[in-house]
Amino acid sequence: TASKGWSMHVPSEVTGEIGKAVSLPCTFTHPHQTYDKTLTAIWRVKEPYNGTVVFKCVAHSSSSLCKTAVGSKNRYQLLGNPRQNDLSLQIHNLTWNDSSKYFCRVEFSGDVHDKYESRMGIRLQLIDNSTAPTSLSR
């Protein structure tokens, strides 16, 4: 899905293991040659555009890191660099509650049209390997 130079690329599904970490890949393209003003990265769950925001970070200039504004710091971590069009998120210590659809969004300050969100969510499937037998010997 592209709109005037915007597009977003996410997998339709990612599998994570209870108690471990998982990364949710999200990359995007935008119509600007360069962009060094304020940028906001947002992840929400359940539905696009009005689902609950679980993670949000703001980078004020091209040199500054994306400072977390929403999201528990020890659980959600931005893996990608939004300046390099990468919003990938890592979730630590997965629990069954994390099972949901995840939507990434980017907002550039200034023009109201400079925001884009994936309508295609990433479905996070969870497995629990701690209950699986450790050896397969009969």
Rank of each mutant, 00 (worst) to 15 (best):
Q90A: 14
G110T: 09
L78R: 09
E17A: 07
K37N: 13
I91N: 02
Q33I: 07
M120Y: 01
K37L: 11
L78W: 09
K20M: 08
R75M: 05
I91Q: 05
V106W: 12
K73L: 12
A59T: 04
T95P: 01
S3N: 14
D128V: 01
S7C: 08
K37P: 00
T52E: 14
P82K: 08
L136M: 06
T38M: 11
N93L: 09
C26N: 07
T131Y: 04
Y35E: 09
W96T: 07
A69F: 01
Q125H: 10
K56M: 13
L39W: 02
L39Y: 04
K67I: 12
E13S: 12
S12M: 04
L39M: 15
T34A: 10
K115N: 14
S61P: 00
V14D: 01
T29I: 09
K73Q: 13
T40M: 07
L126M: 11
R138N: 13
Y116I: 06
F55I: 04
A2S: 14
C57S: 07
K20Q: 14
Q84F: 05
P25H: 10
L124Q: 00
G71W: 05
C66P: 06
G71P: 10
G121T: 02
V106T: 11
E47A: 12
C26E: 04
E13T: 15
T1S: 12
P25Y: 07
S12C: 02
A2T: 15
Q125E: 11
I91F: 01
G51T: 07
G51W: 00
I127Q: 12
H32D: 09
N81P: 07
G71A: 08
A59E: 03
M8A: 14
I127S: 06
S99W: 01
V106G: 03
K56T: 08
K67G: 02
E107T: 14
S64A: 13
T15I: 13
P82D: 08
Y35C: 04
K67V: 10
Q77A: 09
V54C: 05
I91T: 06
D114A: 14
G19S: 09
P25Q: 12
S137Q: 13
K67W: 01
K20S: 12
K67Y: 07
I127Y: 00
L136V: 00
P133Y: 00
G121N: 04
M8K: 08
I127D: 01
H9K: 10
K37C: 03
N74K: 13
H113M: 10
V14N: 02
V106Q: 10
T15K: 13
T27G: 00
Y76F: 15
